[in-house]
Structures are given as C-alpha cells and as structure tokens.
Design a protein around this nucleic acid. Structure first.
Length: 123
RNA sequence: CGUGCAGGUUGUCUUAUCGCCCUGUUGGUAAACACCAGGGAGGAAAGUCCGGGCAACUUCAGGAAUCGUACCCCGAGAAUACCGGGGGGUCUGAUCGUAAUCAUCAGAUACAGAAAGUGCCACAGAAAUAAGUAGCCCCAACGUGUUGGGGUGAUAGUGAAAAGGCGGGGUAAGAGCCCACCGUGCCAGGGGUAACCCUCGGCAGCCAGGCAAACCUUACGAGUUGAAAGAUCAAAUAGGUCUCGCCCCUGUAACAACGGAUUACCCUGAUAAUUGUCGCAAGACAGGCGGGAUGGGUAGAUCGAUUGAUCCUUGGCGAUUAUGCCGGGGCAAGAUAAAUGGUAAGAAUCCUGACGGUAACCGGCAGGAUACAGAACCCGGCUUACAGACCUGCACAUUUU
C-alpha cells in the first residue's frame, strides 16, 4: 500500500465513534478549521479522520463537495507527518464562509498537524 | 452585417502525477491485501409542484364531508395526470375591402353551469335588478299657470351597463301593442366521430349586464404514510414465556360461609380457629432443581438497489401529422458520515488592451473568462438556473442595389 493512499478504514464512519468523539473529544481552533481529537482504542492500527462542512455556510452541494475534497486531499498528502502513536480519531470542521484554494488549506493543515504532535506528547 | 428579444440543439479537450468507488481474472485456506483489465454524474442530477411503480398499515359495502379536475377527436401512455397533432367556440391584432359584417393570416384562451338558488358590483344617477328626475300626454279644480290625480321607458341627462335594434303602422302621448327585416331562445330538419355549425323551416314578443380564480350546482376522480418504507441475519449471557421430569424438605393460596375479639354502629383492616369446593389416597396451586423449545430491542451487516411500465443505439417499412410496426446490436454510476477527485502544465473558444501591416481584415504579445450545477429507490411530466458556440423566428439600425 502506498504511503499516500486513503482507504475506507482510515475514515471515521461508525455512528457510535463519531458520537463519542463529539461528546468527549478535546478540541482546538486553528483558522480555517475547528479540530476535534480523541485517542483511538488500543486495538486500532491507524488514525481515523472525518471532514465536515456546514450546510449553513454553503447551501450548494457542489461547494461542500469541493471543500471536502480539497481537505481530504491535503490530509492524504500530509498524513505521513502525523505522530506514530497513539492512534487518533480526528474531525476537521471547516468554519469560514468562503471557499479557500487548495494551497492555503494544505498549509493550514500542516500547522494543525504540529498541534496534534503537542497533543500526542502530552498524553 | 450589427444589436436586442424569444425558442431549439449543444454543454470544452489533452498530458503528467498522486488518490477514491464498483465489477472481473489471478495469487492467498479465507479475510485483509497485492497485480492486471474494464466502468464511474446531469440537461437540468436542482426545486419537490403533479402522476405512477414498489412497500407497510388499514381494508364488508354505501353515504356525507374535504380536496382535486373541467371544449371535442386522435396519437402516445398504466393513467380522466402530463405531453404532442388536428379541430370547434370566444377574444385580440393585421390585411383586402366595406355602411357594417363576412373572408384570409397571426396570436391568446383556467373554455362545464349566471334561464336552480344566495351574494357582491366603486363613482355618477330619480332609479342598478329596480324605476317617473326633467320632459311629453290626458283628466279635474280654480286664482289661466299653478295644484292634484293618472298615463308614458319614445326624448333628455348619468353610467361599463337603463327593458333587443332599426323602419313602418298605431296612439291623447307612447309602448313587440301590431307588422317586415335583423338579433336572441326553444323546437324541427340537415352536416359532422364529436365539440359544434348551417337553414328564405316552425314557435316564442324577448325571458333584461358582469363576477363561479365568491358561495354554490353538475359530472368525474381521490384510503393513509414514504426507501429514514420494508425484509433478513450466527453464537452466547441475563431475564421472560411455553413445555417435560424430579423433589415433597417448605407453605396452603384464592373464593364462599359461619363464629369470636375490638368498636355506639357501618365500612375497612388485622389476628386466631373451623368447615366446604372430590374426598381414603392421589391429584390441584405456589416454591425449588434439571432438560428442551421459543426468543424482543440497540448497534452493525446483507437485501431492497440499479435490465427499463421498450433503456440506449442502428437498419427497413408505413401515416397529412403527432407517431407506429418489424428486425440487428448493446448493458453503460451504484456511493451510504456518502466514491466519480486534487494538483501542475498545455490546447481550444470568447472578451479586453496596446502594437505591426492594412481596403475588408490578419498576425503575434499581455491580461482575464469558460456557466448553472453533484446521482441518494426507480420511472413519466412540470417549474426554475445556465458562460460560450450553432440554428430558427421577430424587432430596430446602417450600408449597397
């Protein structure tokens, strides 16, 4: 498996784990994202992530899809820099009301990964 | 040739690189995974405004209420929806021409009933669903131009609308009061599949505007919900239910009756004892132990779910047209916290700018733009959004003939 791949197992899709992440996860805000984090359970062998764009800010499905695709692509290309352990569950929530281009999204996501390192060291 | 409006068709392409979803082959016990091959958004996928399929619930039939639909024929269709073709009525405009219709062409049409009933209709006007304001005419009285009574819808005035129009007869003046013509309604005859149309046919003296997208009447139709529908899924544990066996070590419940105690009495409750429900026992009920069967919900997964109410493509034959019939080939997204993409470079088309040559125009350069919009069970229709290109029609302007 290539290091840039992004199979379904690395995505957060279980209803219960999403609920748990939103209820118990710690969070920080780094423009343009709000990030929720929670340690994955011990048996997990990879990080899991989900991306969210509010329907309130973007009424058209085309725009929401575009932003989610750019975020997913930026995560896919930079997830190598994530800490090895512990495995995390993350939610990236896109907050601004305008559509940002891919390169700014990528730079900001790299910054957020540094914050994730701090979180991993503390715990 | 330019600009604008309306309708229709179309809905940019290539390469590199890193990825995603589905299907298939191979490897792998199998899963995970790996390699290879193939496929992967729209004309509106949108709005969810109609109509279905499908599913669950309900379900004997009828009525009422509520909601919806409303000229005719044909085609298509599952359909009384919707769409298309043709036709009829009504209205509007243009053309020829006229006293005026008619005729031809174009456009619009939510086009059942206003003669079943109720209601509403500004302003003006005496009066608006019903009439005497002015005027005209007749009679009576006297003060001889006034008053009173009566007739009159022909004249004037008002209005969108004032008792069908016009001419003649008639009359005190008038009036379909009578007559001819025209109009209207009904009947008859004829034409047309029908809506409807025609008649130098008969009858009626005319029943009095508009609004039904006001109530209403007539005819026809409609159960409710919505794929978050709905169906299925192994093993184990606890508990429940059913059933079989054992234990009698434990208790006699429940119901009814009677007696006693307490209390002034009743109701109610408590305690103790006795008898009965079959009676000799067993059985019955409760409890305990063991075996068997059944087994709800949540989460998750699978199906529903992608081959259709002939969908796509292609050939032939038919119909004035809408479109039909026969044959060949094909299967072409199937996600589910939701794939179908991100990035970079280039091409194409269009716009803007200055520059070079120039009769129109051409050439390279720089910058910008490439819309609306993302399947969510499926299908038919409607509505709305839309850069640029192409086609058709209309309007305006310029040039040439």
């Amino acid at each position: 498996m290539g290091e840039f791949s992004f199979p379904k197992s690395e995505r957060l899709s279980k209803r219960n784990s999403i609920q748990e992440l939103f209820n118990r996860g710690s969070s920080f805000y780094l423009y343009p994202f709000k990030v929720l984090i929670l340690k994955n359970d011990e048996f997990a062998n990879c990080h899991q992530v989900l991306f969210s764009v509010s329907k309130r800010n973007f009424k058209k499905a085309v725009d929401r899809n575009l932003i989610k695709r750019r975020m997913r692509e930026a995560y896919r290309l930079n997830k190598v820099q994530l800490p090895e352990s512990p495995k995390l569950q993350m939610a990236y929530i896109y907050t601004p009301k305008e559509i940002l281009d891919f390169h700014t999204i990528q730079e900001k996501l790299k910054e957020s990964i540094k914050r994730l390192h701090q979180y991993a060291e503390k715990s």
